[in-house]
Amino acid sequence: MTAQHSSLRRPWVERWLGINGWIVFAFLYLPILIVVVFSFSGASNVGVWGGFSLRWYERMFGNTQLLASLENSLWVALWSTIAATVLGTAAALALDRYRKWATRGAFDAIVYMPVIIPDVTMAVMLLLWFTQIGLPLGRVSITLAHIAFNISFVAIVVRSRLAHMDPSMEEAASDLYASRWKVFRKVTLPLIMPGVLGGALLALTLSLDDVVITSFVQGPGSTTLPVHVFGLIRRSVTPEINAVSTLMIGASMFLVLTSLAIQGRSND
């Protein structure tokens, strides 16, 4: 149908759409590419090619502050992803399976609001709350904050998977006298697993990316990698930042491709 449709379109429209498409791709990729290329340059000045060198990577791995922030990032990302995945999946099941229950509308609202609220507002809210209840600011407070915004993202991803699920499998299992828990563990969970993993990978990415909320609720010594890098960027542009950036781009590319592979295999 698509083919017939494009034959209806005038050729100059088609050509213009193509040109726009490739310009947008260049716009999206060239800046990232330039960052990556200059992380391998030997020159001390960003933008000047000084021959291939790994000196900025060596320097990065010798930077103890940077490594400490990386460790914090991984700690926070791991725990917040696990917690948000469990809570978000349960929330998605509740939203998808049970249409009517008391305060259901309010629950819908508070599950989706963290997604659309600006980072700055969320950061202010959590800082005020944590200082008010006397929670010491550090890794734990950062993790609690990350769980709060990640529950929603996991719930949305899992819910879209549940919406496409065929309920007859579950019905068949319970017709064969499987208990509720067994149906969930043996039928429902394997079927929604790609959604759960996709949600978990998204949560992991968002946790590893967050700057604003973390910088508000962090304490001394608990700085994460992106917050540390943000501080470096504000001071100056150095090839060492390019090396860190390349590492971060590599990590997110790995995560997105893993996620796509999981979703792709489950669709076959």
Partner: peptide, 10 residues
């Protein structure tokens, strides 16, 4: 999916 901060740094 790429880091927002890194993309701004570019």
């Amino acid at each position: 999916w790429s880091n927002f901060l890194v993309r701004t740094y570019a």
